[in-house]
């Protein structure tokens, strides 16, 4: 794993305001602090730590969604995106419209989204349901559509937040199969997982956020 560095984190720290307002002093929850690491081209990095350690927060920082309170994140010219399932779904709209919209929100252009629609429909195995409003879907069907949309996106760095359990058993297997395929292509992946076996199977390197933060500070 001595590829190029694609992302560098330097002394990253994020804290959330837990409470406080006009008349009360604010209290903060420090998700993590002083986090420094490099992400290399092609590697699979796993983030572990108990709930609240800041795993998902770190993913958001890496994705450029959140700006860190301390330190900085240097992007060496790569595209980064968070694997978001069902982003922007509207239950009143049919599956096709939702797939189009969700794809565009994830970063597809309209033309790319249109061109991918048939593949998305085929992968989700929803058939004629694609033209029905999403509110008529079961949660499993919704998850399938969401996964199928995200599936075809290939940023340079893919961030995954324990989102692999989708749909019924057979679809879950299919999803996991595709996900593992993605992880094992040349793509760089940062993965949040609680499953030791999954980390063992997939990750080149592990960062344990538990040891780094989760402190409550005034």
């Amino acid at each position: 794993m001595n590829g190029q560095i694609v992302l560098s984190a330097r002394d990253l720290g994020v804290r959330y305001k837990r409470r406080g307002g006009l008349f009360r002093p604010p209290r903060y929850h420090q998700a993590f602090r002083g986090l420094t690491f490099d992400l290399y081209q092609g590697e699979t990095l796993a983030l572990t730590g108990r709930n609240g350690a800041g795993k998902s927060t770190l993913l958001k920082v890496l994705a450029g969604i959140l700006r860190p309170d301390e330190g900085r994140l240097i992007n060496h010219g790569v595209t980064v995106s968070l694997l978001s399932l069902q982003a922007g779904f509207d239950p009143e709209l049919p599956g096709t419209d939702n797939a189009l919209l969700s794809a565009m929100l994830l970063g597809y252009t309209r033309a790319q989204a249109r061109a991918s629609l048939s593949r998305i429909a085929a992968f989700s195995e929803l058939g004629a349901f694609m033209d029905e409003p999403v509110k008529t879907y079961s949660s499993g069907m919704r998850a399938r559509l969401g996964f199928s949309v995200a599936m075809f996106l290939s940023p340079d760095v893919l961030l995954i937040d324990e989102a692999l359990a989708v749909g019924d058993r057979s679809f879950r297997e299919k999803a996991e199969r595709e996900m593992n395929k993605k992880i094992h292509s040349l793509q760089t992946v940062v993965l949040v997982s609680h499953s030791e076996s999954q980390i063992e199977k997939l990750a080149d390197r592990v960062i344990d956020l538990q040891s780094l933060g989760g402190r409550h500070v005034l």
């Binding site: 595209t79 970063g107 599936m151 996106l153 290939s154 340079d156 199969r177 593992n180 395929k181 094992h184």
Partner: peptide, 19 residues
């Protein structure tokens, strides 16, 4: 799976760095 996951396979849709 092994054959499909051949690293030579081109990426599906590459998103832009910024819209």
């Amino acid at each position: 799976w092994l054959e499909e996951s051949d690293p030579a396979e081109p990426p599906a849709v590459a998103p832009p760095r910024r819209r």
